[in-house]
Write a protein that binds this DNA or RNA. Structure first.
Lengths: 264, 264
DNA sequence: TAACAGAGTTAATACAGGGTTAAAAAAGAA
DNA sequence: TTCTTTTTTAACCCTGTATTAACTCTGTTA
């Protein structure tokens, strides 16, 4: 299974770590919808409502627009200290049209990925858009989910060379990095055995859900496991020893008597 | 499975310089149309008519050679001595369906760009396709011109875009020059065998990511490797001897018991 | 209150996974 | 070819991990 529930809004936003997207769109309504959807994905968004503003942001970082401040604040820099990793570009813009922006950027050797968003859906328009250096082309009206998925795909290739990456799982003082098989507890790295790691990964993917011992055996050990369900208890014990301040009065992995265990 | 030999029309085609595309499509007519259109663009095309054949072509060790190796020239032969730079993938395939192929490739750590071609045009299908690691999604019926334009966009980014072509890889005291097949460790040049080099190249392309022995065999040896996964251990040992100050207490190539190895 | 079931805890043991080295086999180079 | 380098296999050891089992603790119910 590849899809995974996203834990929403990690508490600490570090703009240097977030993907930075520039949304260039003159229709206020659409622009705001885009911003909302993309911010919900955890991206840092700047916007421009016309071509000149967009070029300003892209070329120098100096802009005539006030930059969107991040919701929860408390981050070190403004958005335009960092280069954009993706541009979502409407074609029909005041001042300078989108195609020209795209052409200009490529002419200047700027490799930032560009996703064109346009009401012009004809084949010729689409081909032309890709021709002048865009990376993707979506026609209005578009599905917000698809747009987000396409952004993810572009950013994935940009940042991680094309391999999909699993989101980091956080809960209170525990952070789990699925790709790295690494777990931090109170900023200390702890060394988990494979079974412990899989257990924790499962727990953290579905916090607050109660798992029976049988379900845990199915998910972590595999459906072909034969043996005592007491095995789970022992592994839970090991895990508690590595996670909990006081393993005998657990705060993370809670026993639900008669049912099983729950994380969180 | 059938592989297509090079078109001979222009006499001096250097396959090492051409973009290599794999077309996976079971309908003969569409497949032939794709081949014609893409060959007209100057790409080198291989085809597969079912999922198993596609996987065979994609996973054979030869097709995972890195660009560097073929840039060094002197190529005599067939298309599949070279890695594919793009896969055009139909979803509805005999034997193994396209989504599974996509998922499997990504699961093995193969980052080749994938353009999905499908009759299923629903938003959910498109999102799902991108979700499992595809880079673009086009629904049938499609315009051949648009398809070609999208291929160009993907290849442009692959070859010249986003990241520079073959960036120098650095981590702490290790520097790897992909083009030159050279590695510096603490400013000392070390001599790596081919396998060692490609292992290190892979590791350094995705630092901190844990690779299982199977993934390493897939990516470095090729999916058709038959033999003991213990082989990896031995090569890791050699590599450690050349990288680490103290090979028995490695700082770069770390063992993650039960999972595999991680660089950094 | 006793009796019981569910859960906690710990220790003992078996075993799988990984490290290491040597030597055979294969691949390249001269 | 012959020599050299590289790759793979095999054997051995060592250690961390999984599992079982025995015993304890705790909450529930009669």
């Amino acid at each position: 299974m590849f899809t995974r529930e996203l834990t929403k809004s990690p508490p600490k936003l570090d703009i240097g770590q977030m993907s930075r997207i520039l949304v260039v769109e003159d229709e206020d309504l659409i622009r705001e919808m885009l911003v909302l959807a993309l911010e919900a994905e955890g991206y840092a968004i700047a916007t421009a409502a016309d071509g000149r503003a967009a070029l300003g942001l892209l070329q120098s970082g100096e802009s005539t627009l006030s930059l969107r401040e991040l919701a929860s604040g408390a981050n070190s820099g403004t958005l335009n200290e960092f280069p954009f990793e993706l541009v979502i570009l409407d074609l029909m813009l005041p001042q300078i049209n989108g195609l020209d922006i795209c052409r200009l950027l490529r002419h200047q050797g700027n490799p930032v990925p560009i996703l064109i968003l346009s009401a012009k859906g004809s084949e010729t328009d689409r081909v032309l858009g890709l021709e002048v250096g865009a990376d993707d082309y979506l026609t209005k009206p578009f599905s917000m989910r698809e747009l987000v998925a396409r952004c993810r795909a572009l950013l994935r290739r940009q940042r991680f060379g094309g391999l999909p990456q699993l989101p980091v799982l956080r809960f209170k003082d525990v952070t789990l990095y699925p790709q790295e098989c690494r777990v931090l507890v109170r900023d200390q790295e702890v060394n988990l055995s494979p079974k412990e790691f899989r257990l924790l990964e499962l727990f953290m993917s579905y916090t607050r859900r109660v798992w029976s011992r049988e379900q845990l055996l199915d998910q972590v050990w595999g459906a072909d496991f034969v043996g005592d369900s007491k095995t789970v208890d022992v592994h839970i014990r090991w895990l508690r020893e590595k996670l909990e301040k006081d393993p005998s009065h657990p705060e993370y992995i809670v026993t639900v008597r008669g049912f099983g265990y729950r994380f969180g």
